[in-house]
C-alpha cells in the first residue's frame, strides 16, 4: 500500500494550551505532521521561512506582531503559501483583510475538529475553504463599491 506523504503544518497561536492542543490533535492524524510552532507573528514568519510548511494555521490576534501582519509578510515573500486563518470571533474585520491578502482558508476556533482537518486538506489541495456563513457575508462585502476582491 502506498503511504501518502504527510501534510507538513505550522501552527501560530500565542496561547500555549491551544497551540499544544492543536498540535497534538493534528499529529494524531495519519496524513498530517506539525513541523513548527510559533507564539507570535514574527516567529510565524521566521518559522515559515525556515520550514516552508505545506499549510500554516495562523491565529489573527497575537501579542507582538499579530497574525494579520504575519499573513501579509508571508504572502508577499511566498506567493504560493497556503495559509489558514484561525479566529476566536467571526465578526472580525481582519478576516476579510487576511483573505484579501492571500489566506486561503478560515476556521473558527472551537469548531469541530473535523472542520479544521477538512479545511487543512482542502487548502493543501490548492483550493479555498471558507465557512458557508462567512462566504455569504464575504460575497456581500466584496460586492460593495470601494472594495475589491483580492483574486
Amino acid at each position: 500500500m502506498k503511504v501518502p506523504e504527510s501534510i507538513r503544518i505550522l501552527i501560530a497561536d500565542d496561547h500555549p494550551v491551544v497551540r499544544e492542543g492543536l498540535s497534538a490533535m493534528i499529529n494524531r492524524q495519519p496524513d498530517m505532521k506539525v513541523v513548527a510552532e510559533a507564539g507570535d507573528g514574527r516567529e510565524a514568519v521566521e518559522q515559515f521561512s525556515q520550514h516552508r510548511p505545506d499549510v500554516a494555521l495562523i491565529d489573527l490576534r497575537m501579542r507582538g506582531m499579530d497574525g494579520l501582519h504575519a499573513i501579509l509578510a508571508i504572502c508577499r515573500r511566498f506567493p504560493g503559501a497556503r495559509l489558514v486563518v484561525l479566529t476566536t470571533f467571526d465578526d472580525n474585520e481582519d478576516i476579510y483583510r487576511a483573505l484579501q491578502w492571500g489566506a486561503k482558508g478560515y476556521v473558527l476556533k472551537g469548531a469541530p475538529r473535523e472542520e479544521l482537518l477538512e479545511c487543512i486538506r482542502t487548502v493543501h489541495a490548492g483550493k479555498s475553504h471558507i465557512a458557508p456563513t462567512l462566504a455569504a457575508r464575504l460575497a456581500e462585502r466584496f460586492s460593495k463599491p470601494g472594495l475589491t476582491a483580492g483574486n
Partner: peptide, 21 residues
C-alpha cells in the same frame, strides 16, 4: 474575554476532543 476566557475554552475543548479520540 477574548485573550483569556475564550482561549481557555478553546484549550479545554481541544483537550476534551483529544480525550475522546
Amino acid at each position: 474575554i477574548h485573550d483569556i476566557l475564550a482561549q481557555d475554552f478553546v484549550g479545554i475543548l481541544l483537550q476534551l476532543e483529544a480525550a475522546r479520540d
